[in-house]
Design a protein around this nucleic acid. Structure first.
Length: 328
DNA sequence: GAAGTCCTGGTG
DNA sequence: CACCAGGACTTC
């Protein structure tokens, strides 16, 4: 399940292998991956057409990321400076207008971005949903694969924003800064927690409060910070909020390191997850296993699993005691 | 703010 | 064969 670290691995792969290439053609194999693209299109054909025409001939600029959203700003082709222009533009000078739109990608649960894969996927469940042809020497194809089609791509207008790149796609403009952005601020995080009347894990999963965190890293960060997932956000202290934010950052960076170690031209992606999961997870998926923090103490406990928000929460009863009051 | 929706491979 | 997993969005 791609969360921030996995998406960042993909971003780096796209940056290395596809950035600077011009899209030659696009083929859409499963329109469901374009569910969120041009929702006002009058027909499926019109939706595909508007997606394809927005991409063909465009040069892929440096890919950007916020939380779990990834986007590639689209540059218009080089335009020769007008020969009639003033003396400022010399012969052979070109103008590259700033991108106004981006290809916005969300991996959902099972999305992958692959570069230069064989025409047939290695496994049946790797469902190809669309391909971009990118003429180039090393690589010439960027492919989107999505088994469960929760993810997708869309063309979105870029709007000015505090993001390091200066803009974000309009379709992702409601997403908050993520823990690895310079804009992330502990004091603001603390205040937004205090304002919100909800449980701590719900807040961590709310992409408009802090972005990039999914079910897995939420539980991991709560374990590291020794906080219970049902803790009312209104009762959080400044110190606890700071501790939590540091835990989030640390778990993200550790996962990134583990997931970012290996990718080649074939796999931009890739489950940063698979390598990291088995070894480093402290709470997620460890139901009934000893908590690695309190294991050697007199109060050693086993990791518990509770149903939460239609999914699961994993926690240690000793290290993350349930709050007495569940409402602020 | 809870529930429903989108999906399908994998598991009980 | 029923059910689970999951993120983001819509709907009550």
């Amino acid at each position: 399940m791609p969360e921030l670290p996995e998406v960042e691995v993909v971003r780096r792969g796209v940056d290395r292998w596809a950035q600077g290439r011009t899209v030659e053609s696009v083929s859409v194999t499963d329109i469901r991956s374009l569910r969120r693209h041009d929702v006002s299109a009058s027909s499926e054909a019109a939706r595909i057409e508007s997606f394809v025409s927005a991409l063909v001939g465009r040069r892929l600029a440096a890919p950007q990321r916020r939380g779990k959203f990834l986007w590639i700003p689209l540059e218009t082709p080089l335009v020769a400076a007008s020969p009639d222009a003033d003396a400022g533009a010399g012969a052979g000078e070109t103008i590259r207008p700033a991108p106004t739109h981006a290809l916005l990608i969300h991996l959902g649960m099972s999305g992958q971005v692959l570069i230069n894969t064989p025409s047939e996927p290695s496994q049946k469940h790797l469902k190809i949903t669309l391909d971009l042809q990118l003429p180039g020497t090393e690589t010439n194809q960027m492919r989107f694969i999505d088994q469960r089609i929760f993810g997708g791509m869309q063309i979105s207008e870029l709007v000015n924003s505090a993001h390091p790149s200066g803009s974000v796609p309009a379709a992702a403009a409601h997403i908050a800064a993520d823990p690895l952005e310079p804009a992330m601020n502990a004091e603001e995080f603390f205040r937004s927690l205090r304002r919100k009347k909800t449980s701590l894990k719900r807040a961590l999963l709310d992409q408009t409060m802090i972005s990039g965190i999914g079910n897995i890293y939420a539980d991991e960060a709560l374990w590291f910070a020794q906080l219970h997932y049902l803790r009312p956000t209104g009762t959080m202290t400044r110190a606890e909020a700071a501790r939590l934010l540091i835990a989030v950052e640390q778990v993200m960076l550790a996962a990134l390191e583990a997931g970012g170690t290996s990718f080649d031209a074939l796999y931009v992606n890739v489950n940063g997850a698979s390598g990291y999961f088995d070894r480093s997870l402290q709470s997620y998926g460890r139901t009934g296993q000893p908590c690695r923090r309190c294991a050697e103490t007199p109060r050693a406990a086993l990791i518990r699993r509770d149903p939460f928000m239609g999914r699961s929460s994993f926690w240690c009863p000793t290290c993350q005691p349930r709050p007495r009051r569940l409402r602020a």
